[in-house]
């Protein structure tokens, strides 16, 4: 059943990777960010993660039981969805928010279409967009100050960064994640650790995070400072906000991102551009969720039109150039 996950154009390369093994690697890669979030924002974060994962796994099992399909919770994909959703939530949301969100992700974004491999949106992000539209106050105000665990009065630093093009946070604070933000998005070092692990293990393609973060950094450098060009802060753009977790863990989702290398690069660049546009000129302070969701939507079109060159076609071209 789960083999349907790996949809690639030929030639097919046999590999020993199983869906379960890949998913387990992703869970491992997310652990540093989850631990960092708990340390930074307190025990409550761990509770949110727990509720989200439990709700995702329970929804998957209950739905599959109800429609009399084989229960596939042991492939870890529901665990990842729950984990990813929790990491994108503010640390002070009421616990019913991750519970409802994870159930939405599993049932309405994934299972109604037939389960893993058939969904066209990243379930965790679609659920986040749903929660943001449903309970906007919780999703944009329930922040917590790092280490002190008291409720933060201000919005995330990203809103101020978008308006002024600069931030008061030092590079060290940004790398360690010592700023208000979603549970798993702030600690850049932890995310980098997990992301590099996935790249080394050949689970994700470096082109997506590179294209995403590169485009966002360059774009912010050019347009990020109001009233001036080429004076924006590229590091603030990728370190403050959800771009890092999005680029490594969301935009790289196998099922909802292109299969060809070039298509993946386009996916990354597209995500970067839309994130930039929404941040600088849009109605929301952060655009990562919507940027990745939009690129998920056009992924079938990218796969349709960005096809790899036929094997041996380069030779043809050379032969023609040779003037034979």
């Amino acid at each position: 059943m789960g083999d349907r996950l790996l949809v690639t154009p030929s030639p097919h390369v046999k590999s020993t990777k199983t869906v379960q093994g890949i998913m387990l690697d992703v869970v491992i890669a997310l652990c540093p960010a989850a631990i960092a979030g708990t340390v930074l924002f307190g025990f409550r974060s761990a509770l949110i993660i727990l509720v989200s994962v439990a709700s995702a796994v329970a929804s998957e099992a209950l739905y599959q039981k109800a429609v009399k399909r084989q229960v596939s919770i042991n492939d870890f994909s529901a665990v990842i969805t729950g984990l990813l959703l929790a990491l994108t939530l503010p640390p002070h949301v009421p616990l019913w928010i991750p519970a409802i969100g994870a159930a939405f992700a599993i049932v309405l974004v994934k299972q109604v279409f037939g389960g893993l491999g058939n969904n066209f949106l990243n379930p965790a992000l679609a659920a986040r967009a749903f929660l943001l539209a449903a309970w906007p106050l919780h999703m944009t105000q329930d922040w917590v100050n790092p280490m002190t665990y008291d409720a933060a009065t201000s919005a995330t630093p990203l809103a101020g960064f978008n308006a002024t093009g600069q931030t008061a946070f030092t590079l060290k604070q940004m790398l360690l994640g010592q700023r208000p933000g979603s549970i798993g998005e702030t600690c850049i070092l932890a995310l980098l650790l997990g992301g590099l692990y996935l790249i080394v293990r050949d689970i994700i393609d470096y082109r997506i995070p590179l294209g995403y973060l590169g485009t966002l950094a360059i774009g912010t450098w050019i347009f990020g400072k109001p009233g001036a060009f080429f004076q924006g802060d590229p590091l603030g753009a990728i370190f403050l906000g959800g771009a890092f977790i999005g680029a490594f863990f969301m935009a790289t989702d196998y099922v909802t991102s292109p299969v060809t290398p070039r298509g993946r690069l386009y996916m990354g660049i597209g995500c970067g551009l839309i994130t930039l546009v929404i941040r600088l000129w849009g109605g929301y302070p952060e655009g990562v969720t919507y940027a990745i969701l939009f690129m998920n939507l056009v992924t079938p079109l990218i796969d349709k039109y960005v096809v790899p060159r036929y094997y041996g076609s380069g030779h043809d071209k050379m032969a023609r150039k040779g003037g034979r």
């Binding site: 949106l121 679609a126 749903f130 929404i278 109605g283 969720t289 919507y290 969701l293």
Partner: peptide, 12 residues
């Protein structure tokens, strides 16, 4: 779900 993704453009 698609219109959920398009909500991101509101206020653009």
């Amino acid at each position: 779900l698609m219109s959920l993704a398009f909500l991101g453009f509101s206020g653009l």
